[in-house]
Design a protein around this nucleic acid. Structure first.
Lengths: 216, 216
DNA sequence: CAGTTCACCGATAGTACTATCGTTGAGCTG
DNA sequence: CAGCTCAACGATAGTACTATCGGTGAACTG
């Protein structure tokens, strides 16, 4: 009897995690099209009604899933960018700041696609996803500023936010291309991403030189 | 009686166009959440069953809408890029190649978002949207090649496709930012887009110089 | 060990929508 | 103008799913 001696609390937590993991595997396999409370419950091995013991509705479950995934992603990205900042002349560290998010997105393709879609859907249910995207973007802005991108004026900060936004969109588009089988070599996509960033790096340096010349 | 003397054929076409336009206005106002055959028919002033006289189902209508919008967009973009190519040193023409797609996307915000979402959803119903995105991307690749981006080797062509993909994703992300009220000034977003492209232009020129030096 | 809690269950009312059917009557055709 | 066509209609069967209810028994509590 390997499943005995579980407390009521532990059993409930286990069921909850089973529901979350069932939802995740359905999403990874079929996207959100095949997602329903009955389906999730069945794959988790419980009755459909039991779904509502753990979640208020499907949006509640998706929000939980999103917060967990988003928090993990954000933490991982801040860390890899911090490492790159500490070694500004190591090109491999810079490449890692692109490769790590790519790999994270590719780990759960359909979940990634689902959140992309949710971010584009305005409704109270998807609001948390949009908020999380905003938080991640804002962290990227901070990291770009720390890496030397200009952020003194209000205009420069607006520009930096656009750059951050663009970098995220670029990375996601390369991930989608990889998922669709168009870009089999991740290294090549990282090359392209680095070159895109380079456009702004040189623009920023030129602007900085100008400012320095004017100040001296 | 202003609506008399319409042939049966004309009357049918009118109803069809009314259904399409009703669907578009619902989408623009509420996205695809409020979309149903009954709702579209009601706003078009016909019975729900009449929907099926004109379309096989909702996906059929969306496909029609998408093909029309996509064809218009593609034509407009090829034209503005051709104009820019004819005057390679006119920065305003280059900016127009970014501003025109932005304005097109912003003309029907929710339709734009809907197609973005559909492109991320793999199903037989959304396949035409994905195909159209592929066609537009492929045209952009052609135009970039015509504008002098390297496309001699297989690797360069793969890279060019990634660049085209990235540019589209960048433009879309700026459009979304504008719709969300974060980037009120379209000119600033165009600045950022041009700078991103610049990263690849300089990279391409450097590579071309290298090749030239090696050849001489 | 008697009483309480509560996770889980089967059953089901309710919702929203899709897609089809046979009917009707206004236009078309010869 | 007689017969035909067919766009549009009301009615409705069918589908798929959500969310709630009261009952049950195993785990907790004192």
């Amino acid at each position: 009897m390997p499943e005995m001696a579980v407390s009521r609390r532990e059993a409930k937590d286990l069921t909850r995690r089973r529901l979350l993991s069932a939802a995740l595997s359905i999403i990874d396999a079929e996207g959100d099209a095949g997602l329903s409370t009955g389906r999730v419950a069945r794959e988790a091995g419980v009755a459909q009604a039991t779904f509502y013991v753990h979640f208020r509705n499907m949006d509640d479950l998706l929000r939980t899933l999103g917060e967990e995934a988003g928090r993990q992603l954000d933490t991982a990205l801040r860390e890899v960018r911090r490492t790159s900042r500490a070694a500004p002349d190591d090109p491999e560290k810079l490449r890692a700041t692109f490769r790590v998010p790519l790999e994270r997105m590719l780990a759960h393709p359909e979940l990634f696609r689902l959140f992309q879609r949710m971010r584009l859907t305005r409704s109270s249910a998807t609001a948390p996803v949009a908020e999380h995207a905003a938080r991640n973007r804002s962290h990227l802005v901070d990291d770009l500023a720390a890496a030397g991108f200009p952020h003194g004026t209000a205009r420069a900060r607006r520009r930096l936010e656009m750059i951050a936004d663009g970098l995220i969109a670029l990375t996601e588009s390369m991930a989608v291309g990889h998922l669709e089988g168009r870009y089999t070599d991740l290294d090549e996509t990282v090359d392209v991403l680095v070159a895109f960033l380079h456009g702004h790096r040189t623009a920023a340096r030129r602007a900085a030189d100008h400012t320095g010349a004017a100040a001296s």
